[in-house]
């Protein structure tokens, strides 16, 4: 008897993620890349690569669910919002999770979960880049460091520089004036991380925060933000091993109707 496979595709504003699960919900393969100009094409290429790697064919995939900003562009069986997908993915990985904080490229959100992974409530950032991955990218650009390095830099900070502006453009000029004033890079980075944390914490106050709290999205790899957020919220944050693919995982689980 052949295994059945399900595909979850998350076309985000910055990166596209693809996850393949088998009918038990176990991850068989995953891949990710920058969305670039056409997230759909990137997704198609990633799917091909995954299939090749596993020695599978397109017809081995029983169902596909697309999510993320580019979800409608991909010819999937169904498109489901990333909130529902994220909730399902996290409930699968952390059955005790009741709150998900997700910071992606263009938005940040807080999802309140019911047991079983159903969404009880959610809040998303206002139409603004504050408290998102994009915000970190812009600040990294101003500081001339790589986003990946923000992590280590924040750890070296002695005293973080406060960034008071919420607006990304104004915050960038604040960063520049800190640089001009000769402040340590590490301290500015710590300030940037704290600013993201503060923004997301205020979002969390709308839905309320119930443990366990799971932190997902690409930004969850940044320990500077993780620590700043944990401190701000005064609670423990669980971070999945691969925090950026959890919505794609949820999409794959939903494709297979695999319940938690």
């Amino acid at each position: 008897m052949l295994n059945k496979y399900y595909l979850g595709i998350d076309i985000g504003s910055l990166t596209t993620k693809v996850v393949l699960v088998d009918d038990t919900g176990a991850v068989a393969a995953r891949a990710a890349d920058r969305s670039g100009y056409s997230g759909r094409r990137v997704a198609e290429r990633l799917v091909e690569e995954i299939l090749k790697e596993k020695g599978l064919d397109k017809k081995d995939i029983s169902a596909t669910v697309a999510t993320g900003y580019g979800r409608v562009t991909f010819p999937a069986d169904r498109e489901i919002s990333e909130i529902t997908c994220q909730a399902r993915g996290i409930a699968h990985l952390f059955p005790a999770a009741r709150t998900v904080i997700d910071i992606g490229g263009q938005d940040s959100k807080v999802i309140k979960l019911l047991p079983g992974g159903k969404v009880a409530d959610f809040a998303m950032n206002d139409k603004c880049a504050a408290g998102t991955g994009r915000f970190l990218e812009v600040m990294a650009g101003a500081l001339e460091v790589r986003v990946e390095d923000l992590d280590d830099l924040a750890a070296q900070s002695g005293e973080s520089c406060p960034i008071s502006s919420i607006c990304t453009v104004f915050a960038e000029s604040e960063v520049i004036s800190h640089i001009a004033a000769g402040r340590q890079k590490a301290d500015i980075v710590a300030g940037v991380c704290a600013s993201v944390a503060a923004r997301v914490a205020s979002l969390a106050s709308r839905t309320g925060l119930e443990p366990e709290v799971v932190f997902t999205g690409g930004v969850a790899r940044n320990k500077g933000v993780v620590n700043a957020l944990a401190e701000h919220l005064r609670c423990r944050l669980l971070v999945p091993e691969e925090p950026e693919v959890t919505a794609a995982l949820g999409a794959a689980l939903l494709a297979g109707n695999i319940k938690v």
Partner: peptide, 20 residues
Amino acid sequence: FAEEPVRNRVQAFLETLSDI
């Protein structure tokens, strides 16, 4: 009015109401 973010929220909200 930002179309995509609005559509996204609306869809997620309706999904919570329709037992996906």
